[in-house]
Design a protein around this nucleic acid. Sequence first.
DNA 1: GTTATCTTGTGAACGAATTCACAAGCCCCC
DNA 2: GGGGGCTTGTGAATTCGTTCACAAGATAAC
Lengths: 207, 207
Amino acid sequence: MKRIADSTVRRLSLYLRFLEEFEHHGHSTVSSEELAQRGGTTSAQVRKDLSFFGSFGKRGLGYSVPELAGRLREILGLGQEWRVVIVGAGKIGTALAQYRGFRQRGFRIIAVYDNNPEKIGTMWDRFEVRDVASLTADAADDRPDIAVLTVPTEQAQGVVDLLVEAGVRAILNFAPAQLVVPAGITVKHVNMAMELEGLSFALTNRE
Amino acid sequence: MKRIADSTVRRLSLYLRFLEEFEHHGHSTVSSEELAQRGGTTSAQVRKDLSFFGSFGKRGLGYSVPELAGRLREILGLGQEWRVVIVGAGKIGTALAQYRGFRQRGFRIIAVYDNNPEKIGTMWDRFEVRDVASLTADAADDRPDIAVLTVPTEQAQGVVDLLVEAGVRAILNFAPAQLVVPAGITVKHVNMAMELEGLSFALTNRE
DNA sequence: GTTATCTTGTGAACGAATTCACAAGCCCCC
DNA sequence: GGGGGCTTGTGAATTCGTTCACAAGATAAC
């Protein structure tokens, strides 16, 4: 299969969000132009994005909202439930553990880990914080697919090695560090400082 | 000034993070190759990124860590304190309000807003949640530069209009909606669902 | 059935970002 | 002070992503 650009996947995810809105409002069809306006892009972009995966529209008419939504869910792999562990029971980890959006979209949090003895055993929301040392052993039963990593930068790589050993195949990393992983493991980075500094740059460098 | 790509600015922010680590460990110089490895990119990329703003290195030797860090802070506009308001006192808003990283990097949270009468007046960390209706009036004193927007999608645009009126010039938006703003206002999007679905896609579509 | 209108799907053109490759500059050592 | 070893800075080449532009397919009206 042809390699799909990251930017394309992000937009597909966005289109799906809009389709769900349209569905909710009872619209049965939608044109590439309408999707484009919502997403701040162009109709050609929308069509090109979709064309990588097939042709889902009817010429002259547009796309069937429920059908396209279904196709996108399929493409994005949202037909199944993904098993997620959160490692790092700090501020961000906690907020994410409580975030309902995860479950709604088929991402089921199965455990929260930390290495701080004072946190281990305490309850976060409805999760008991587990010792990160037991991660690999737990994984035999839990079979996690995805890890959300919110530990301090200097601990990130060590935890990643454990996660890989535990069979995790995708990592959402909040630490500003490049992680070394074997081929076939996907890592995505989220970095609040980076976003803010991007704004700071924009405010500073306007001509 | 030549337009700088978003991806370049993000990397500059990352380099700065690494330089701070190097500084902390007492390294006085660093090569583009070392920075590249930390950041998962190439030395040519590092040099190209920096070249948009000047030439800060010494051939044969590399870059002075404190000097380059200083230059990057200057480029990114981190020499000053930015005044930030958070609008939307939900889960994410709360986590962000408590996040120490903001203050450390010169982003000072000055107020938290919501439109829910049950939340208005309650304390979040050390902030009293204010009524979003008073935003414009408050701004005369507060003079916010940046807003972090964590309200439901359907309310986002309305709040943005208020923010623009209040003189905010940069917005970090957590809602999955395209926002309409006048020229000169910068908007950046952060979307957790999108990131997760990107992972889901990668897990589903591996050849 | 024909015509007018609309919107998709997609090669081709374009533009942006990354990588290559190498001359120029700097340091250190003899 | 000359040579060897590094590393920067940057045009040129390349790769990647977006936009253009239009033929082809679908509907609706008459």
